[in-house]
Design a protein around this nucleic acid. Structure first.
Lengths: 292, 292
DNA sequence: CCAAGAATGTGCGTGAGTGAACATTAGCCC
DNA sequence: GGGCTAATGTTCACTCACGCACATTCTTGG
């Protein structure tokens, strides 16, 4: 029973009762049908049909095969329907991953998406570790930094996150306002642990001020924001968060190198599915608001 | 979902997780496996697997296919086992046909066979009409007369039925014993309706005596025997029955032309099955006793 | 009774699918 | 870091299975 196509051929012969009818239904030549039946019977060592000039008559074995193959045919048809329908509907599990910094932005978007599609289950992973799309760990990833260029990954620009160098009112009261860029060396900063993040801002900061001036380091972006809020030092905060955080004063005009691009990354095998397209569209629509 | 072999290939890929493993399991080249997957995904319009250099990872659709195909594989394996086993075991329905005259001989043989094989269902058709083996109307037929020479039918000799010209005691008391063959024209005979049976004995009888001397005609062999028993006339009775019927006297020595051969006929497609072979063996063994 | 139609069965030439070889890449062990 | 293994993926030559044509047989309808 190695060749499933031969079983399918035998199935149609048993259903139609004739080789010619089965051949027409299968879209092949009737000689092919005869060969399939002969091969299958030779493998099984049992005649599946009694041949007579008016058609093929299924034996007991043939009738048994008919029943089993009928069930298989039904199940395959249902399977094909499910798979094709699944490709056109937004349902099943959807795994999205991003850095933790994006959680407060992305979560509401995914929650909205889930509300719109009843059959959808969202799994939102935010970890500093890079989930690998090609291993099926996630369907969609939000990545920051330079353009990801892994093979088999589809990359789309999501947004430009402009950041601003800010300090809290309490910090300014204590240490004063820096007069200009050169004066920054006399101040204290909140930074990201360099072993974790290699954001462009970090490189800039390390060039401008000595390492000992970065007096507060964390590997969590939210913790960094909190530190800036509470006056632990001067820090870089993206426009989006700045709008939600009162009492922060911009120190110097934003520099272009603080502009961190972010990307929507999907695996090429999943990129065309309606489900993935839906979440991509939702995230891109939301990104317009974030940038405004 | 036209090509079941491609489904089978995808099934093995989903099971193994690698194209190479699936190719080895299937006994084909891995290039073939890749082509099958590509073709199937193109047909469905949905990716079944995420490709990465260490193997193939099934998507939701691929996992769905895996489940369905696993069930199919199991069912096909069971089917193959049933069919192969069925070919080696004596079970299921067995249809035997013969002339009504053989009923009293064949019935006990078939009953014995059924007792030996629990899973066997016997269907014994005895009708004057010829059942057609090539239409699956019967598995085994007992035929009399000249060698049946229909194509696709396997013919084996069963026995030679020697018949004897006999009369009952009551007939002899009424009409006397024929002195010799020439005296037969002065007697009365029980014959078979010529439109039904063309047994050799009939031709001989028609030649020897005028038609009006055949005063009892029937289309049923058993009825003929009964008629002879009750003195309706002189008739031809086979050795087998003669032994079971007391009070019959042989009129003249048996002639060779009264020797009717009988044959076991099966369709070539069913002849090699163990079931058919079992009934053939049983009938041939019984025939030895009948002739003794 | 003959002819038309529909079915199985068979030999032969061709094309699609197969297999071999090679390139490439990721992970692992030393 | 560097070789090694085991995967995927692509190209090319080839073979096996397919389609075609014809023969044959049985049934049916006029």
């Amino acid at each position: 029973m190695e060749n499933w196509d031969e079983v399918r051929t035998a199935f149609h012969v048993a259903r139609m009762g004739t080789v010619s009818g089965a051949a027409e239904a299968l879209g092949v030549h009737h000689a092919t049908v005869i060969r399939h039946i002969d091969a299958l019977e030779a493998q099984l060592g049992v005649k599946l049909f009694q041949r007579h000039p008016r058609g093929y008559n299924a034996t007991e074995a043939g009738l048994d095969l008919l029943q089993v193959a009928q069930a298989t045919d039904d199940q395959f048809a249902q399977l094909a329907g499910r798979i094709k329908g699944q490709g056109e509907s937004v349902s099943g599990e959807l795994v999205v991953t991003s850095l933790g910094a994006f959680a407060s932005l992305i979560t509401p978007v995914l929650a909205d998406l889930q509300k719109k599609h009843a059959g959808l289950t969202i799994k939102y992973l935010n970890s500093e570790r890079l989930f690998r799309l090609e291993y099926g760990e996630a369907h969609v990833a939000v990545r920051t930094g330079p353009v990801p260029e892994q093979p088999d990954n589809v990359v789309q620009p999501l947004m430009q996150m402009q950041s601003h160098l800010v300090a809290s009112q309490s910090y300014i009261e204590r240490h004063g306002m820096p007069k200009d860029t050169d004066d920054l060396v006399n101040h204290y900063f909140v930074g990201v642990d360099p072993t974790v993040s290699r954001a462009p801002f970090n490189s800039w900061l390390e060039k401008i001020v000595p390492s000992e001036r970065i007096t507060f380091r964390t590997d969590d972006t939210n913790a960094m924001f909190e530190a800036v809020m509470h006056g632990a030092g001067i820090g870089l905060v993206a426009t989006t968060w700045l709008k939600k955080m009162p009492g922060l004063t911009e120190i110097i005009p934003p520099k272009l190198e603080w502009c961190i691009p972010s990307w929507l990354v999907t695996h090429v095998d999943l990129h065309r599915t309606t489900k993935v397209q839906a979440v991509l569209a939702a995230l891109k629509a939301a990104a317009v608001d974030w940038q405004a």
